[in-house]
Structures are given as structure tokens and as C-alpha cells.
Amino acid sequence: MPQRREAAIVGIHEYPLRVVGPGTSALQIKAASAIKALEDAGLSYKDIDAVYDTGSHQGIGGLGISEYLGLKPKVIDNTAVGGTSYEFQANHAAKMIAAGKCEVALLTYGSTAHSDRRNIGTAGGTSQGPATPAGNMEDSWGQTLIANYGMVKRRHMHQYGTTDEQFAEISVVTRRHAMRNPEAVKAMTDLEFVGVNEITVQDVVDSRVIAHPLHLLECCMISDGGGAVIIASPEVAANCAKKPAWIIGTGEATKYRENGGDITVSAGAQSGPIAFADAGVTPDEIDVLMAYDSFSITVMCM
């Protein structure tokens, strides 16, 4: 099956610091990343006619980014669905480009969560922001994000007989790959990891429990950082500085907490087959998998 080439990634940048310290804002990270991504593509600000940003940090989304950078985009998208927001946005950008609504899309992200000492995942939800339907049912019991994931892991162990050792294999493999990436090693060093080295299954199961049954080495660290991606039409991509990476297939799915729902299966289990079908490829043709791994259970639920 011929793979379509309607939109491509032509420029990228990953902000190099995981601890930015005081004086650097999420907006500055986004702007700096946008400049570098445009340089990577061989493009300039005047080429951008679409902006994608969740606005999840400092409340500055596509409109704020456009104003800050002096852009006049035809398209702005602030889709925010958690950690997968940027895959959604890449899909939306590719579709809008294919439809002729824009030619060059800028996707930006920036966070200073570590420097702000934001207790993501471990803070209680009570009295944080306006009441929500889900919050009304859970905040009063002191539920936290990591406790939610702990419950999912416990359910997975009950439902499928999965063991701590099997979950630990995920942490072991991700650390093994990280130790072969100088940028990841630098990030772990800057974040003051206890032991910047490969780990074993025993190391994982012996690490302290954070939210039963999740252990410390099954949880991601909170860091600063960000990046930017440039997605362009075939006509623009043909004249960019580097060989384009074509977006050949995408998939979206929705999953949320619901009574009677299977919490051991994520939306990724639904969106994956959609993306494979869209691209006309099969899983055995894939050489690289980059999975969202906030916790070991996040990967297992795919």
C-alpha cells in the first residue's frame, strides 16, 4: 500500500536543560525552542501559519505564543488531553496541512515544573482549583495522581497475575536505553538521581514504595524542559534544510475514569490499531517504539 506524503516533520528542537533555575519561564523555553526548530528546518517565523500549544503551563497557549513571537497564524489549536496532547496536535496539524488550511505548523511545549517545585502526582487534590465532577467524587478522600496509577497497577496484577518483577523489567529497559543517551545521562545527573547507572529488577523491587504497589524506580522524575516541532506541507518540505520525516499514520482515542470501565487498558490500545491502519503498516514492521512511560503501569496498559 503506497504511503501518503501529505505532511512532514521538518524541524525539531529539545530544550537541553532539565533544571533551568529561577529567572527562566515556560514561555521563554517555548520561544527558544521554536527558534532552534526553525533553524533546524531552514525556515523563519514568517513561514509559520499555524500554532499548536496546550497552554498548560502559565496559561499561555497558541494565542499567547503568537503574540509573543509576533505571528499571525491562520490556525491555532490548544487541544489539551494530558501527556498525549502533542500527538493529538501533530495529527491535527498534519490533517490541516493536508486540507490546505495551512503550510507550516509550529508545536511548542515548555515547563518549569521542577524549578517551581510543583508536586505533580503527590499533592492531594482537595481545594485545588474549581470543583469538577471527578474531583467531587475523589478530592475529599485525598486521592493523588500517583495513587490512581497505583490502583491501576494493583488491578492489573489482580486481573492478569502480573508480578512486580515483570513491571520492573520496564524500568530496567528504559534505564538501559537512557544510559546510552548522553542527554539522558546529563538529565539524570542534573536532577540528582541516586545512582546514574543501569539498574536491575531487584533494584526496582527493593526501592521504596511511593504509592502501593508502585516503587520509586517505577516512577518518572519531575523536570523542567520543553521543545518545538515544525510540521510542513510537501511543497515546503522539499526546500527545507534536512530530509523530511513524513507523518504516514496517526490515531486518536479517548479514555477517562468511568464506572465499569477497564482501567487496565489505556486509550493507546485503541489509537494504536487506528494509526497502523492509517499508515498501512503492521507492528512487525516497526523498529522503534517510544512509549509514554510516566510509570511502569502506563506502558503495560498499552
Rank of each mutant, 00 (worst) to 15 (best):
M1Q: 08
R4F: 14
A7G: 04
A7C: 05
G11H: 07
P16T: 13
G23L: 00
G23V: 12
S25P: 03
S25V: 12
K30L: 11
K30M: 02
K30G: 15
A31T: 11
S33T: 15
S33N: 02
A34D: 11
E39Y: 05
E39R: 00
A41C: 03
L43Y: 00
Y45F: 04
K46C: 08
T54Q: 06
G55W: 11
H57V: 11
Q58S: 13
I60P: 01
G61Y: 12
L63M: 08
L63V: 12
E67C: 15
L69D: 11
G70Q: 10
G70F: 08
K74N: 07
D77F: 00
A80G: 15
A80F: 14
Y86F: 10
Y86N: 08
E87W: 07
N91D: 09
H92Q: 05
K95D: 03
M96F: 13
G100A: 05
C102D: 00
E103D: 08
V104Q: 07
L106K: 02
L106H: 07
L107S: 03
G110A: 05
T112L: 01
H114S: 13
I120D: 09
I120Q: 04
T126R: 12
G129W: 10
P133L: 15
P133E: 00
G135T: 04
N136P: 11
M137L: 15
Q143S: 11
T144I: 02
K153F: 05
K153W: 05
M157F: 06
Q159M: 11
T163I: 01
I170G: 09
T174I: 10
R176D: 12
R180H: 08
M188C: 04
V196Q: 05
V196H: 00
N197D: 10
N197W: 05
D206M: 13
S207D: 11
R208K: 13
V209L: 04
I210P: 04
A211R: 01
L214C: 03
E218R: 09
D224Q: 05
A228L: 01
I230D: 06
I231P: 01
A232M: 00
V236I: 12
N239V: 09
K242D: 11
E252W: 09
T254K: 13
T254V: 15
R257A: 13
E258H: 12
N259F: 08
G260T: 03
V265D: 11
V265S: 02
V265C: 13
S266P: 15
A267T: 03
G268R: 00
Q270P: 02
P273T: 15
I274Q: 08
A275C: 08
V281M: 02
V281Q: 01
T282Q: 05
P283R: 01
E285R: 07
I286S: 05
D287Q: 05
S294Y: 05
F295L: 02
I297M: 03
V299W: 07
C301I: 01
M302L: 08
